[in-house]
């Protein structure tokens, strides 16, 4: 067991990402998502989840990646309430002591809040999401 954060690794269009499990409520299959024009463009809509209404964010829209919305739903607690994230697949849980490094300089506008940093795992580079920055 590592002493660092426990991470969930998931993929979007064959690129791997990680998110801390601290705020993870549930991993499930996406149900019927209804359009809601009161939500911003990055949301796919809202769905009923455990007798409450959950806004569902399409990470492909957030990241401007082509492709159909993922079918796997990650339910997260964020500073603004519970939200669902649509991703393509969940790969594994990772108990990590690995070094989380900042995104290298010059890659993106440093004021963008979407990523906490990067880490290496099994020969790949994972981008670690900032769940509060997604909303």
């Amino acid at each position: 067991m590592g002493q660092g954060p426990r991470l969930l690794i998931f993929s979007i269009e064959r690129d791997d990402y990680a998110i801390s499990t601290d705020r993870l409520v549930e991993i499930t299959v996406s149900g019927l998502v209804l359009n809601d024009e009161t939500l911003t463009a990055n949301f796919e809509g809202k769905m009923e989840f455990r007798e409450r209404i959950l806004p569902v964010l399409n990470l492909k829209k957030v990241f401007k990646v082509q492709g159909k919305p993922g079918k796997v739903l990650l339910v997260l607690k964020t500073a603004k309430g519970e939200v669902g994230l649509l991703v393509d697949a969940v790969t594994e849980f990772l108990d990590t002591e690995k070094l989380i490094r900042p995104i290298p300089q010059g890659v993106m506008n440093p004021t963008l809040p979407y990523f906490v940093g990067i880490l290496k795992h099994k020969g790949s580079i994972l981008l670690l999401l900032n769940e509060d920055g997604l909303l």
């Binding site: 690129d15 401007k64 990646v65 290298p104 890659v107 580079i125």
Partner: peptide
Amino acid sequence: SRRVPLAYSYVQGLIDYRGTIYP
């Protein structure tokens, strides 16, 4: 290279070479 969403348009991605991450 590993794609980075929302990066500057001229950023192709990241590579890991001998333990160093290079944009």
